[in-house]
């Protein structure tokens, strides 16, 4: 029995069933669906996923070896890293790209255990490079205002 595969197969079945149910709400003008409704093709794909997941479930249940057991390493670092990424995603419009990117880079390098002095140096250096290359040279526009909503500049 391969527990990892059973878990992923069950997850796929749950998501696919949810997608199937959700596809009932696809609305199109009646004149446009004379041949196939907009839900037909997604349901075909979802049906395929459910079939394959069931097959995987059966195979995993009867497998004699446990070779597919997942090795997770330092898995606890992944949610921390994802948190640092989402922090930047949801804060950059309010804090400005550079402060939010600096915070998330410092956090990510803290997670990967880069020494503090090196961490601060590289994070700052990287953002200087970003400013020179992307803002000055390529003239890309990023939100740079600090707390625009709070300070009433939005």
């Amino acid at each position: 029995m391969r527990r990892g595969e059973i878990l992923i197969a069950l997850f796929l079945i749950v998501v696919s069933v949810a997608a199937w149910i959700s596809s009932a709400g696809f609305v199109a003008e009646t004149a446009m669906v004379r041949t196939l409704s907009p839900a037909f093709y997604p349901r075909l794909v979802v049906g395929g996923i459910i079939f394959c997941a069931l097959l995987m479930l059966v195979r995993a249940r009867h497998a004699r070896t446990r070779e597919a057991t997942v090795a997770w390493g330092q898995w606890y670092k992944v949610p921390l890293a994802a948190g640092a990424m989402f922090l930047q995603v949801f804060s950059f419009e309010e804090l400005g790209v550079f402060p939010s990117a600096w915070i998330s880079l410092v956090l990510l390098m803290w997670i990967t255990r880069v020494r503090l002095r090196m961490n601060l140096l590289i994070s700052t250096g990287f953002l200087v490079f970003v400013y020179l290359f992307f803002v000055l040279l390529l003239q890309l526009k990023f939100p740079t205002e600090f707390l625009p909503t709070l300070l009433g500049r939005d």
Binding site: P38, I49, C52
Partner: peptide, 28 residues
Amino acid sequence: WLKGVIAALIGLLLKTVGSDPLTGAFRF
């Protein structure tokens, strides 16, 4: 092959997100 097929189907399903190319109906 089974994991390959599942991965391809996940990709096909992800591609159905958005407006339907033929009817314009919103999907997922």
